[in-house]
Design a binder for these strands. Sequence first.
DNA 1: CGGATTTGTTTATTGGTTGAATTATTTGGA
DNA 2: TCCAAATAATTCAACCAATAAACAAATCCG
Lengths: 373, 373
Amino acid sequence: MTARIMTASHAPVRQSSVRAHNLALVLQTVANSTDRPSRASIATRTGLTRATVSALVDDLIAGGLLTEHDPAPRTGAGRPAAGLALSGNGPAGLGLEINVDYLAACVVDLTGSVRHRIVSHSDQRPISAAAALAALDELAGQARAAAAASSLTLAGAALAVPGLVAADGLVRVAPNLGWQDVDVPSLLPGLADLPLMVDNEANLAALGELRAASDDEQTFLYVSGEIGIGAGIVLDGELYRGGRGWSGEIGHVTVYPDGRPCRCGANGCLEQYAGQEAVAADAALAASALGIALAAVVNLLDIGVIVLGGAYAPELPRLRDGIEAELTRRVLTAGLAPVTLRAAGLGADAAMRGAADAVIQSVRDNPAAWLSR
Amino acid sequence: MTARIMTASHAPVRQSSVRAHNLALVLQTVANSTDRPSRASIATRTGLTRATVSALVDDLIAGGLLTEHDPAPRTGAGRPAAGLALSGNGPAGLGLEINVDYLAACVVDLTGSVRHRIVSHSDQRPISAAAALAALDELAGQARAAAAASSLTLAGAALAVPGLVAADGLVRVAPNLGWQDVDVPSLLPGLADLPLMVDNEANLAALGELRAASDDEQTFLYVSGEIGIGAGIVLDGELYRGGRGWSGEIGHVTVYPDGRPCRCGANGCLEQYAGQEAVAADAALAASALGIALAAVVNLLDIGVIVLGGAYAPELPRLRDGIEAELTRRVLTAGLAPVTLRAAGLGADAAMRGAADAVIQSVRDNPAAWLSR
DNA sequence: CGGATTTGTTTATTGGTTGAATTATTTGGA
DNA sequence: TCCAAATAATTCAACCAATAAACAAATCCG
């Protein structure tokens, strides 16, 4: 097999990039293993030679990303293998979430385990963005202290916000928080020394689902039903954020062109028929409206898996039939391949977990950057 | 800047992959230049050293992909540069199209010039798929003969079909041709010795537009309005085909949930309000329906540019206002960033051109494969 | 005519993977 | 008990490709 390489930007490739890539390849291979693979099995699985894998693994162990364990099972003749696993004592990710009625922070280590978790319930709507973020900054400080006490090194932080976020962390609009043009990073001084990513809540929750999903579910739509409705689009294992980072606004897809007025100014937005209150008021109507909008997504993107999260997850039994009826009726390819509908695996923590996952995923994707920090 | 490398699959990277990547990088740099760049300017633009670029260029010239020209302009002191340009005598792509009322073939060289073009008007509906493809096979043979007479070497062929195409070239459904489960490659024996790609007509037309588009238009939606309505989704310079290759079925996005019955079995599909006849019958209704569906796409994918092709292109003046009215009303981020609407640059040849472009693009993306053929 | 300037090539060096040989550690059978 | 087979991991010379720096080529300008 010939290896195709693509750079994100049009950048030259040097030998050090080769090493960076192969370091990531080895680390991902360990991460995606259910067992504790040996160097030899990594070599056969990746196509690299045993010599190369050994050299790469040495670097990863020295950098605190991998650890060596006793041979896990026992098998036939031959020298026993040294089992490799992700280290739980190396880098960790700080996941943050700000939402209408709570603030939350968590610390997740490289293995994906949640090491610390703090949730603070309080209504953010009556207070200013600065005050809300000051409280979050405080919460983040507690989480950092807990991480340090566990001798974890934070590789970065990510914050989930229910709104439209620009690439530089500027929150353009967060309707349910009442925010407009809030420059988040400058209002979190306690995190100034960490790489901070700010992203939409549904996007990060989708990333959380991606990490929890099986290997064959690399393309799906995550829909989070809260007061508003957002979606995260995962294509081929990558979150699609759109040209400006504003993808996934399924809540304002038109379902009934002349229907109920929406606070966005349009009529007939999905949000008016399948928002949290609408689901409670009329589940059948909510399911039908959701099905119509989801059918549009499937027709456009040929997505085979839809994951319902947020408030939708517990309601799925009441919604499923109505949604599936619209999908089979309105998806052109419904007869050729089915659309799978399932509830999100992570609960209310999805966005916060996804935020932390995004940080550790960045380490997994580019361990060389961590090693040379 | 550190180079990020990603492999499409989880493949190891060896030194030869580095060379393959950098060969492509140099070739693309020449292709994207308006002038005829020197080795030195390629080096500064790509970040590679002059020595490396020289070595790579030597390979590309020896392989017939680049040619050296007299220094194009004249500038200041110093040794005059040798201008590099894509070769018009190296590999070429064979683009094919089958549609309801015509067959077409064209040969495009590496520079993007159409060297040969044959169109044969005939209604495919009354004849079988086998008969239609036999006629296309004959047409392709003529095009191949013409290419050979121009001493062009075909690197592959691509065929545009108005229907749902699976990855292996099987046409699952082509409603307007009356096709179902047609195994195209086996019915084109004259092309058995060439790599053949079969794809949806709108997808390939979108690729054609991508090649003709400027550097800042790397994310757009191409909508082709014919008897049916199809769309090609280009994200970050890459065509998004969907999990099974069936993306872009915008014609069956629901616009009016309880509206006109569609031949697909659903009600209120866009196709019933903005298909070719519907546009002729009521342009205002067509524009509004199209605007509603396009607003859904923009809300979901955060796409800033919409290109209207096929029968829509000449009608755009009559449709524009109606479409834009719905977009500004229904796109959540309309106030933050505008959505650009424009007519396709290529005319009716878009799909055929895009098919040929796809072939030469594969050479541009991976010149190493061509050099070592 | 000669220095300045820019292009392109040559050459030694470096970084990283490869392949083969070697060492290490176990099982199983004579 | 001891040796052969088997499997894991390491060592080392060779190779490939990019780099940096020196060098050669070709032009302009004073």
